[in-house]
Simulated assay, not measured.
Amino acid sequence: MARFAALATALAVMTPAVAPVPAQAQTAAPSEAHVQASRLAALLIPDGIYDRLVGPIFDAMMMREIEQNSVFRTAIETRPEILSELREAMVPAIIAIMREELPSYRADVRDLILSRAKPEEVRTLADFFDSPTGRKFYSTLMGMMAASGGERPDNKAVEDMIASMSPAELAELERIGRSPAMATFGEISRGLGPISDGWSKGLVTKHGHRIESAVRDALAPLLKKPRK
């Protein structure tokens, strides 16, 4: 059970906190290693992976803003409907920006994988995350994180997830958990946090003007609406 929890924790550090990290220099590597590392990065960061996290993260950000900004708090208290309408306008805009920048995130993760793992370990990890068990495990974990607003799932949540898996799936998790490749994945995971943080902060650095413009465009018509 502890190995499964460790695997879940290692994967969870990939969630961004919302200047891009410079891409690591890639040493000459066999083309097969590069292909498998790209495959693994794409499996760990599939299209739309963070879409369902944006809403909960946005809600948490708004709650912090309400607590810390008295002007914003007063506006929401006066016009509570603004919050939900602002969310409806902003979340798609943020998702669009994240999707644009996803390839650069994958490239950084690919280079990290190549710098830490042997080619055979990369293939083992890619095969696992591309398997039905690996896809179910990862999808379930991402769903748990979405439900918790982007926070890492606690041990109880991980235990409940494990309890829902079949004996065959547990055997597969046991196998990958004992493999040298998973030990290497622990090393990879320690480098994922800085990459994720750098990428998410880079979104604001690079696209801050778009986000601010989207906020203004969303707020302008809302503030003109008559109070309910």
Rank of each mutant, 00 (worst) to 15 (best):
S166T: 13
A181T: 04
E174L: 14
H207N: 13
E212R: 12
E172D: 11
I176K: 04
R216D: 15
G186C: 00
K206L: 14
W199Y: 09
A214Y: 15
A163H: 11
L170P: 06
A214Q: 11
I188N: 06
R178G: 10
D197C: 03
E169M: 07
V215A: 08
S196H: 02
F185M: 06
A214I: 12
G208M: 01
R175K: 13
G208T: 01
E169S: 14
P167R: 10
R216W: 12
G198M: 02
V215Q: 09
R190I: 07
I195A: 09
G191D: 00
R175W: 04
F185R: 06
A183P: 10
D217S: 14
V215M: 12
A214P: 12
I195R: 10
L170G: 09
G193A: 11
R216A: 15
E172R: 00
F185D: 04
P167Y: 12
G177I: 03
A168I: 14
S196E: 06
F185Q: 10
R210W: 11
E174R: 13
H209L: 06
K206M: 05
A181C: 08
R178T: 11
T205C: 09
G177T: 08
I188L: 05
H207W: 07
T205S: 11
D197V: 14
V204M: 12
D217R: 15
S179L: 05
A183H: 11
M182Y: 05
I195N: 10
I176A: 00
R216S: 12
T205F: 10
M161C: 08
E187A: 13
E172G: 00
L170F: 05
R216C: 14
E212V: 13
A181Q: 04
G208D: 01
I162M: 09
L203A: 03
P180M: 07
R175T: 11
L192T: 07
T205I: 05
G191P: 00
H209N: 12
E174V: 05
I162S: 03
S179M: 07
G186R: 02
M161V: 09
R190E: 03
T184L: 12
A168Q: 09
G186W: 05
R175Y: 06
G193V: 09
W199N: 00
L170S: 07
R178Y: 10
R175P: 02
R210N: 06
G208A: 02
D197T: 15
G191H: 09
I211Q: 04
H207I: 05
F185H: 07
S196R: 03
S200N: 07
R216T: 15
E187S: 01
D160L: 09
K201I: 04
D160F: 03
K201P: 10
G202E: 04
S213D: 14
P194V: 02
P194G: 01
A214H: 13
A171D: 11
K201Y: 10
S166I: 05
R216F: 15
T184P: 05
G202N: 00
F185L: 08
S166K: 10
A214T: 11
E174S: 14
P180G: 04
R190T: 04
R175Q: 06
G177D: 15
V215G: 08
